[in-house]
Design a protein around this nucleic acid. Structure first.
Lengths: 241, 241
DNA sequence: TCCTTTCACTTGTTTAAACATGTTTGTTAA
DNA sequence: TTAACAAACATGTTTAAACAAGTGAAAGGA
């Protein structure tokens, strides 16, 4: 599948940085050099570098160059920070994923849920509870709400594997962006039961609530992910504009 | 202070979106229209819109237009999500800030701290403990480590007000980006004491560890912010590339 | 009526060029 | 020797133009 030029350059540079082709704090080759390397225009190269900046991989310094500030993340924990499925994250971190569907049902959105999720009232949705395991240990309890209109034909079997895989490959949906809010909440009896937590040990947990939009601008998913606190780790890079 | 063109357009559009000049889910005027409005080139306008996309304010849909997906955040809690000082955040949320310096000292980085913070060993640093109040309530306990070389002349008095204000206005430093990791950790006796937490109520808290870089590419700050769990809220928008 | 084609309009990608601004280094003049 | 200047080179901003690709509605034919 042929991607755009800037995306290919971005991937190539990203891989080189991860491979330590450029060492930490070193300056990358200058724009002019890279333009010749990739045989592209300056704008296209700068676009690729801009993506690396937002990833926190490099930092551009006017008059000097582009500095590598990438540090590999410790692989001890499950990490998020991008739009990716549970399966993708697990693979990236070299872990063995498993998903158990606790509940698969459908209903209409009432007033309260509309306020909480952002769906419009009376919209038909699938409501799914799933437990995500990593290396045989339950780590995340997910409450998924999918807009039935946008995600037709969802089944329990699909939910046991990868819903995102179904969306992208079967329904040809493109996921574009995801608004997330991270909070810390008290654990409930359900959390305690399924995640095998002990309230005497940890009595709260990390909660990631997210609204996800597709390329038509439709919010088709609302999800509340409840994470075991001792395995939760969220990476972020903020760039001042 | 004259800013760049794209930044002015970005601010103007952002304000219009926040002011509900465009209603939720409505399409913004097309690129061509906005180009005439702002009398700028297409690239410049697209750059401004691109910033709104990363903010999660709008979503571009090829062939259709740019959709407003901005929802005002509930102002009930202290929220973060950008690079900004405690004071700036407080102001943005319309709250009365206060800062108490618990400890102001300086020393050299040892092996352990170097591993934890990312500073090089033997570097001279300021170590500051600060308690941040909002509306007379202690919410955040901060452990700041500043590189002495980059932040000369730091005093307890400055720490009581705004260190960032000192950095930007006195030292003319430009903060560029900040890598952050959010975790959930057990509360310590110090947290319990200063944040007036009760372990029977909440026995853990939100912890934001951050490395901040200036425009010279120097990591001049490492900070661990320990947040009261019931007031912690972190906003994020992820865009698929 | 219904289907297909076309066309106008939308955003997406890429190139090219010019000028602005910050950094470094080497040269020149005091 | 030192300070000032200039040149070379780095990234930052802006404009212009062309083509690609997705959307939707109007036009036209069966």
């Amino acid at each position: 599948m042929p991607k755009s030029i800037y995306e290919n350059i971005y991937r190539d540079l990203k891989e080189k940085i991860e491979n330590n082709t450029f060492s930490y704090q070193e300056l990358l080759p200058s724009e002019n050099t890279l333009i010749q390397t990739y045989n592209c225009s300056r704008n296209t190269l700068r676009r690729a570098v801009g993506l690396l900046v937002t990833d926190g991989y490099v930092q551009t310094i006017q008059g000097k160059g582009v500095r590598n500030i990438y540090r590999p993340a410790e692989q001890t924990a499950f990490t998020i920070g991008e739009i990716e499925s549970f399966q993708e994250s697990a693979m990236r971190n070299g872990q063995k994923p498993k998903t158990r569907v606790l509940l698969f049902t459908e209903f209409r959105v009432d007033k309260n849920l509309a306020l909480k999720t952002g769906f419009s009232e009376n919209a038909e949705i699938y409501y799914i509870q799933r437990l995500h395991y990593l290396d045989e240990q339950p780590l995340i309890l997910n409450h998924n709400y999918f807009l039935k209109e946008s995600v037709p034909g969802l089944t329990k079997e699909i939910a046991e594997n990868s819903i995102y895989n179904y969306l992208e490959n079967e329904l040809n949906m493109t996921i574009v962006n995801s608004k997330r809010i991270i909070t810390v909440e008290k654990i409930t009896e359900i959390d305690e039961k399924y995640l095998k937590l002990n309230a005497k040990d940890y009595n709260c947990m990390a909660v990631v609530s997210s609204q996800t939009f597709n390329s038509s601008g439709i919010m088709f998913e609302y999800t509340q992910s409840r994470h075991r606190p001792d395995y939760f780790r969220f990476y972020d890079n903020a760039v001042r504009k």
